[in-house]
Structure formats: C-alpha cells, structure tokens
Design a protein around this nucleic acid. Structure first.
Length: 296
DNA sequence: AAGTTACACAACCGCTGCAAA
DNA sequence: CTTTGCAGCGGTTGTGTAACT
C-alpha cells in the first residue's frame, strides 16, 4: 500500500529560494495565514513542495526571526536545555524567542557539539510526541529524569521529580497570595536544597489530583506543607489551554519546574506567561529558571 | 593564483502522531 | 477499527564560502 509522497517532485523548484519566491510566500501567508501547506504552493503560484514552503516560512520568512549572532547567553541556555531535553530542537527553540529549531540544531551540530567533550554520551532520543525511544546503547547510569508527554495536553498523571525538602520537619508553607512573595520564596527553597547536596533524581508518576486539596489552596500560587512524617508540596499550574491543575508531590523527590513547562504546564510562580510569546520567556528569566533548580 | 579542506547553514528526506473520513 | 492525509519533527545532505596550503 504505502503512502503517496507529500507532493509530486516533478516540475518543482529545488534548492535555494529566490527573492521572488520568498515574496510570493510572504504575501500569501500574510493574506491567508499559515496552514494548509499542501495546497499553498498551488494557490500561491509557487513551484515548491508544501513542506518546503512551510520550512521556508517557519525558519526564515516568519516575522520576529532572529538571524545569526547567537549570544553567549543564548549559547549557555542552549547547552543547558540540551542537557535537559536532548535533541528536541523545537522544544529548545521554543524557549529562545526568535530562534528556530533548525538554526539551533545547526548551531549545535556545527559549533556546540565540538566544544563539549567528545566522550560525553549523547542524550536520549525521543520521538516527536516525547515518548522515550529505546536506546540501543546501554547507558548504565543516566541521572537525567525521564520525561513524558512533551506536548501540551491535559494530563492526570505527570512525572515531576521534587527536590529534597531543605528542612524536612519544618512547615514551609508559603501560602503567598501575591506573585512577588512566591517568586521570592520558591527559588530559595530549591537553592537550599542544592547546598545540602541533592540526591540523584528519582522520577515517579504522581497523581495530579485537582480535587484532593483543600479549597483554600486553590487561591495560592504555591503551597507547601508538611504533614506528619510525609512532607508534601502542592503546586498550582496552568497549562497552555488555561486549564488549572494542582499537583501534590512528595518533597523527597527532586523538583524540576521545567518539567511542568515541558509538558505544557507552566507554574504560576515562575514568571512564565505561556499565553504570550509562544511559551517563550526572556533569556534572563529562563537563565534564572534553569539556575534555580538542581539540574541533572 | 589555484587547489583543497573545513565550516556554516539552507534545504531535503523520511518518519511519526494525530485527526478525519 | 482501519485507512488516509496532513503537519511537524529530527537527521542528513548539499552547497556556498572562508581559510589554509
């Protein structure tokens, strides 16, 4: 059976785009919007494959694209995000406003990969949906947390490692009601955890029970409390569709707030605004975000 | 100056997930 | 439930150019 090719290659232009082709594509997308890539070439009068049009638009013609001159800060973030996410260029690019996955991928392959130790094992590969791809190479100990579900979606189970509680027996309830208080407190707890030396991450599936928390907690950005011998940590999060969720964790697991963000959930404590800028944040905020955690 | 090599980046290719039919 | 079409992703290739011999 087999699938038909995305387009007939016959009679199509290949190779570098001309200024005229760019102009045609820009004017068409501006008039009709993105999408329907398969039919776009015909309608726009382009002798190109739809995929080629899409790529050209997304990587070069789209507004607000930054070209070249990847800064030191950006490079640093790329390295750290790559350590966390692996070769998921689109996710990495999503955290760098104006940068495209193709550009970051090229930059990594041509520049950054050489800077890093050649002996360093390559990060885990994943399928597009974020599911782990089974490695053929045996990786005896990979301290990186295993991630699931990178696409924004409603989920009842999330894998969120939580940091070791800095003071296991104390009540660290931060029922802060304003954003400032929360922003001041949340990173502090993580940093204290760092000083104590964190254990290796042990990710687990945790039930995201939206209804299993006291009603008063719903108005808080962050609530952490200890209860008997078990410490818990509740986090209010909001996904890309504006669905709110409150997650209960055991604090003896390392927390990577970024995990939430990767999964389409952004905490209300992080300064993220996932409704703007396509989930991206400014570099300074992202650097702070990355620094605030105990990154694997 | 000519030839060769290395590098950077644009573009292509094949695969996958998802949704609609 | 199966098939099909589409969009999107990451890996790979092709090409232009700078650096070097």
């Amino acid at each position: 059976m087999g699938r038909s090719p995305c387009c007939s290659k016959e009679g199509l232009n290949r190779g570098a785009w001309t200024a005229l082709e760019d102009k045609l594509l820009i004017s068409y997308v501006q008039a009709h919007g993105e999408g329907k890539w398969r039919n776009l070439p015909l309608r726009a009068g382009l002798r190109r494959c739809g995929k080629s049009c899409r790529l050209r638009w997304l990587n070069y013609l789209r507004p607000n694209i930054k070209r070249g001159n990847i800064t030191r800060d950006e490079e640093d973030l790329i390295v750290r995000l790559h350590k966390l996410l692996g070769n998921r260029w689109s996710l990495i690019a999503g955290r760098l406003p104006g940068r495209t996955d193709n550009e970051i991928k090229n930059y990594w392959n041509t520049t950054l990969a050489k800077k890093l130790r050649p002996s360093e094992p390559s990060p885990p590969r994943r399928s597009r949906a974020g599911k782990e791809v089974v490695h053929d190479q045996a990786s005896p100990v990979d301290p990186r947390p295993q991630l699931i579900q990178t696409k924004p979606s409603r989920c009842n189970n999330v894998v969120i490692p939580v940091p070791q509680h800095p003071n296991k027996n104390s009540n660290i309830n931060s029922s802060a009601t304003n954003q400032k208080e929360v922003e001041d407190e949340a990173p502090k707890a993580v940093n204290q955890s760092d000083e104590e030396g964190s254990r290796s991450p042990k990710p687990q599936v945790i039930n995201a029970d939206e209804d299993g928390v006291p009603a008063e907690n719903h108005n808080s950005d962050v609530n952490m409390w200890s209860s008997g011998s078990d410490d818990h940590f509740a986090l209010t999060a909001e996904n890309l569709y504006g669905d709110a969720g409150i997650f209960n964790f055991n604090v003896d697991q390392p927390l990577l707030i970024e995990e939430l963000i990767i999964n389409g959930w952004a905490t209300t404590t992080s300064g993220f605004d996932v409704h703007e800028n396509n989930g991206a944040m400014d570099l300074e905020s992202l650097a702070l975000q990355l620094d605030s955690g105990d990154w694997p």
